[in-house]
Amino acid sequence: MAEEMKVIYERPRSWANKVTHYCPGCTHGVAHRLVAELVDEMGLLDKTIAVWPVGCAVLGYEYFTFDSVEAAHGRAPAMATGIKVTNPDNFVFTYQGDGDLASIGMAEIVHAAARGWPITVIFINNGNYGMTGGQMAPTTLLGQKTTTSPLGRTPQTNGFPIRVAEMLAQLDGPAYIARVSLDSPVNIRKAKSAMRKAFNAQVRGIGFSMVECLSTCPTNWKLTPVESMERIRKEVMPYFPLGEFKVAQGVL
């Protein structure tokens, strides 16, 4: 039988092919995979330096075949700035969670965005501090129960969730800001195309780019992976709408 098999989908070369430490169904793996696919497709493997956060993705560097550094909590944008300044032709991205980026590292992300220098940020918004056991994050929704908001987040005691994408889009520095969701095949396809634009904004030297990814945390949300995906659609998206908030000329 003269039949050949055409590859529809295979593991990216940038993927180190290890079993990750992430919990079953956690969408960190999806975001990782999209990054690896784009690095492959855009021929960036030799030029890439990833800056990993403190949080669940702290060991991110284990899973890729490009160069990596590990930042202090929240400081990834500063470290990425230092790296990009020394070698402007390299491709530098940070990968940060919501505690890392929107709480302790808020100053660093805002000023990196305001400087507008071409670095790319993959921002994982799963509404809580996953690694430390599910405490309240700046992105935790009102009413959402966490280990440090056991009765549910209230504005009186905890303030309001921060919409980072919209906030950074107010600045003149960024070239591309989008919020995507990793809840379904169709949205994951859209997420990848947003990330491609974000990568391109850097590769083409246009400026700072960030993609906020609505993600799940089945373990701390105490939901199954499938229920977690549903929660994104039902509860998270109404507060954190998907879309492109900033698209500078030349970003494609």
């Binding site: 039949e3 098999m5 055409k6 590859v7 989908y9 990216p12 079993v19 990750t20 999806v30 990782h32």
Partner: peptide, 23 residues
């Protein structure tokens, strides 16, 4: 059907997809 949905949502990069092509 090679729709790729399973590979797209798989967080563990555990799925590869192929399709026969007639030689």
């Amino acid at each position: 059907t090679s729709c790729s949905s399973c590979a797209l949502v798989c967080p563990d990069i555990a799925i590869a997809l192929y399709r026969e092509v007639k030689a």
